[in-house]
Design a protein around this nucleic acid. Sequence first.
DNA 1: AAATAACTAGACCGACCTGTATACTTCTGC
DNA 2: GCAGAAGTATACAGGTCGGTCTAGTTATTT
Lengths: 196, 196
Amino acid sequence: MASSKRALLIDTAQALFYKNGFRATGIDLILAEAGVAKKTLYHHFTSKDDLIIATLMQRDQQLLLRLKTDTQRLIPVQTCQTKLAPIMAFFDALAEWITSEQFFGCMFINGSAEYPRHDDPIHLACREHKLLMMQLIESLLVEVELSDKKSVVRQLSIIADGAIVGAHTMSESDSTRFAKIAAQAVLTHFCLNYTQ
Amino acid sequence: MASSKRALLIDTAQALFYKNGFRATGIDLILAEAGVAKKTLYHHFTSKDDLIIATLMQRDQQLLLRLKTDTQRLIPVQTCQTKLAPIMAFFDALAEWITSEQFFGCMFINGSAEYPRHDDPIHLACREHKLLMMQLIESLLVEVELSDKKSVVRQLSIIADGAIVGAHTMSESDSTRFAKIAAQAVLTHFCLNYTQ
DNA sequence: AAATAACTAGACCGACCTGTATACTTCTGC
DNA sequence: GCAGAAGTATACAGGTCGGTCTAGTTATTT
């Protein structure tokens, strides 16, 4: 195995950063939790910020993969029109994630909150994830005929983010239910071939 | 004046916390910026967390007042149905705030991100603000006949939060435009007496 | 005018932070 | 089997953190 320690460090850091925040989580805690020497960390990463970005990149891939997989699994159980099933299933996948045991909001929204400067590499990494999330939403709308697809993608992205924030900030895990309803309303409004 | 220093400290802290984050902003920087002695800070506040909460409470009042005022001002220029004008004006007020010079997201979303534990006093203060925000949205819907008002309030609240997050995390200030469109779609869908 | 409250300036504390250096050990590829 | 990479353990540097303390100064109130 090339560098299992590197992977172990990222996994440990991810759990701690997500649960407690980036600035609140010290290097020493990560090292103690992972059982790894400090020298090893700085062998694989140039700085804490570098570790944060690597953590965000892994989280990005894992979360998108999870949402994609869960969405596909949930498409068949949708009761709506076939072409809308993928995007509706996406909101169910979102609900599963949000109501799962370990949910502390979106790591990327949290990251951009802790590193507010728009030119900060960490902030930019968070932005990158949100762009990929929008691409995922767009990919689930390929079969849907919309009067303005770009606009609908933006609207659904906003609704998804709002649901995540609502669930975390207000500790109300049922926000995805309302997000799905809002998404349906948007799709009804802009779908050219919609049948209730 | 009872305690101008206390007000000065809160004002200074608010600007710095908002721009740079809570944990990233040290007590010493606030004191230097405000030109106030450390002893004075700990005369008015028991701890940094106490100052943070006082800051959040002031911010809560100021932001809600600003949004209420701006909403009232923007009601007359709405082109939609009269009864929907208040809530539509709210999304324009949101847009004015988001596109204003100094915007670093929602201080309460950021706060709950930095203090993720749901029982943390700071997290709870952020939650409180979001509840008041929902009350504001609800108050703008009094004249609107809706099939399920509670549900619509939640949906609009989610859309508003999504717009704020989108503007900050993705650095795209036009998110409120799409939020307003989504809000219109939701209202169209649930409004009993809607006419386009 | 006296007393009390609010304030300044700055030293200081212990804890914690990121990151580096030293010295040694284990693993791994050729 | 040996060289080099990757690892451990730990001390340490240099700084910042929140918070306390002392001592003296200004304001306010009665």
